[in-house]
Amino acid sequence: MASNSQAEAVEIYGVKWSKWSAALSRRFDIIVAVILFLAVVSAFHLHFMLLAGDWDFWVDWKDRQFWVTLSPIVAIIFPGALHYVFWDKLRLPIGATFAVVCLIFGEWMNRKFGFHDWSYFPYSLIAPATFIPGAIVLDVALLLTGSMLATALTGAIAFAFLFYPANWAWLAAYHLPVEVMGSLVSVADYIGYAFTRTATPEYLRFIERGTLRTFGGHSAWVASAFSGFICMLMYIVWWYIGAFLGRVVTVPNKLKTMMGLKKDPKPAAVSI
């Protein structure tokens, strides 16, 4: 039954709310949560597919150098920006997890309906990477430290470092060696070769073409370390961009009289 009484009040997080307004605020929460989900899926997915998409689309692009370096750097941008609004304005430590959950939802929807159902690619070629472990650690770093800077120094670098091992759990199988036409390739290479992409030939792959010296062959960890460094910077930069875009700025509306509002008074003459 609807409560029409303003006298009935509830206290939420130390603030008194009339019952009816508290009920409405929950409606608001749910509608806005759905809006945020749709908006972040769209914006984050668009951003990610056009900056690191090729590596994420194909199993034979997921190399130890560019994929490992680039993916976390591109992926930390939205968590950084959302952390500002979610934490600074709402004290919600879920900005990063929410962002990557949205991203991965958008990706899988398309891998199924686009890449598989429409373009006939097998799932073994088109699985996306997961960022969830790094995102949880990034969120919890902010929750425990309460500081953007401390989160950048701990969570952001962890976001990059966790990327490769978290994905290795499914990717390793695709790196078994196989002999094809007398050449050694990985299973991933052969999958990419067998299931043709007419307009995306082999040479287009932006992958490690041979390292110079990675001191023991630890290409992926060297890449993670560099990625972690850039992630720390990106996180801070995007926190501030989030702050910039999250500001409430307004300018006078010259058309307001057409909606029955009073004209702004003329500014007083300025004497020179």
Partner: peptide
């Protein structure tokens, strides 16, 4: 035993 993507 895994190998990296082959880029030769």
């Amino acid at each position: 035993r895994t190998v990296p993507l082959q880029g030769g």
